[in-house]
Amino acid sequence: MVNLTATLGALISANHILHYHSVLDAMGHVSVRNPLNNGTYFLALQMGPAVVSGRQDIGEYLVESSEPVNGTVGGYAERYIHGEILKRYPDVNAVVHSHAEDVLPYTVVGGLGLEPVYHMAGFLGPQTPTFDIAATPPYQDPLTPQDMLISTPLLGALLASALGTNASRPTSPQHRAVLQRGHGFVVVAGGIEEAVDYAYYAASNARVLTTAVLLARAVGGEVRRLSAGEMRGAADMDAWIAFKPWRQWVWEVERSGVYVNELGGG
């Protein structure tokens, strides 16, 4: 039997871990599909990830509309990122939205893709797509606030579509990550542990790639990306080994003295 308390405890830990490692700032968020009802999902209320501590800090929303259920109030305006991705891809059960500064340059510099350069980032694949909200019809409406937020179901659906569709498995996205021009990035996964892993290593790969590009320019060298085969193999490896860093990350935040998780770390 699925333990909902353990799922919510893991969601709280995910918020803490990604804040601890500077992947989430005060505005980032993580969601998980309800394991007892795939028609709803859980997302922290309008608060920084570091201070999420118990069931009272977590809202529940309908996947179909991202409308709150069970008296949820005070939710994120950008919950449509999560709801529309979960609606479009039944195989996705967890979503992370981040504003990590290590990744942001790759959202605004043309011709510089966030390609994987070491094995822990093979899941990124050969070309991480970039979603530019300014190019969408609803954002070009003069009545739409120019705040770059995914604050409507339509904008959420357009962002979700940027992940593409897996040709051999239409219930899954083609990409595990999408960049948002001048905003941040989103990663999707089959579970919380895997989503945290992807978010952490997307930011880590950005740091490594930036250093490699600068070093290559300084010495006249060339940055060597992973081959297509290496990306596939590394992605398969990373998917099944996500439990290993997860255990360490939970251990770190539980002993940091900074965070409170009333439900246990998962």
Rank of each mutant, 00 (worst) to 15 (best):
P170N: 04
I150K: 02
P173H: 01
A162H: 11
Q140W: 05
V108F: 13
T128K: 05
L154S: 07
A134R: 14
A121K: 06
V109A: 13
G110I: 00
V187S: 06
L143R: 15
P153N: 05
P137W: 03
L104W: 10
G184Q: 04
G182F: 04
S168K: 11
A160F: 03
P173W: 01
M120W: 06
G125Y: 08
S168L: 13
N166D: 15
L179T: 00
H183R: 10
Q146W: 00
A121C: 08
P126G: 08
F123P: 03
G184R: 03
P137Q: 04
G111I: 06
L179I: 03
F123H: 11
M148T: 14
A162C: 14
G156R: 03
Q180M: 15
I133R: 01
V178T: 04
F131H: 07
P145A: 02
D132Y: 05
T130D: 09
T128W: 01
P137Y: 00
F131V: 04
V187K: 01
A121S: 13
T171A: 13
V109D: 08
T130W: 04
T144P: 06
S168F: 13
G113Y: 12
S161R: 10
S172A: 14
T152I: 07
G184H: 04
V117Q: 05
T128D: 00
F131Y: 12
G164C: 11
P129S: 07
H183N: 09
H119Q: 15
Y118E: 15
Y106C: 10
P116Y: 01
V186G: 02
G110H: 12
G111A: 09
I150G: 03
S151V: 02
G111K: 10
V178H: 05
H183G: 06
A162L: 08
E115D: 13
S172K: 02
R169D: 14
T144D: 08
F131A: 08
H183F: 05
V108I: 15
P153A: 04
S161K: 12
F185R: 08
M148V: 11
G113V: 08
T107Q: 03
A177C: 15
A135L: 13
P105V: 08
G184T: 07
V108S: 15
Y139W: 12
L143G: 15
Q146D: 10
P116C: 07
H183L: 11
A135E: 15
P105M: 07
S168H: 11
H119D: 10
P129L: 03
T130V: 15
L159A: 05
M148W: 11
T171K: 04
T171N: 13
T165N: 04
A121R: 06
A160W: 00
P129G: 06
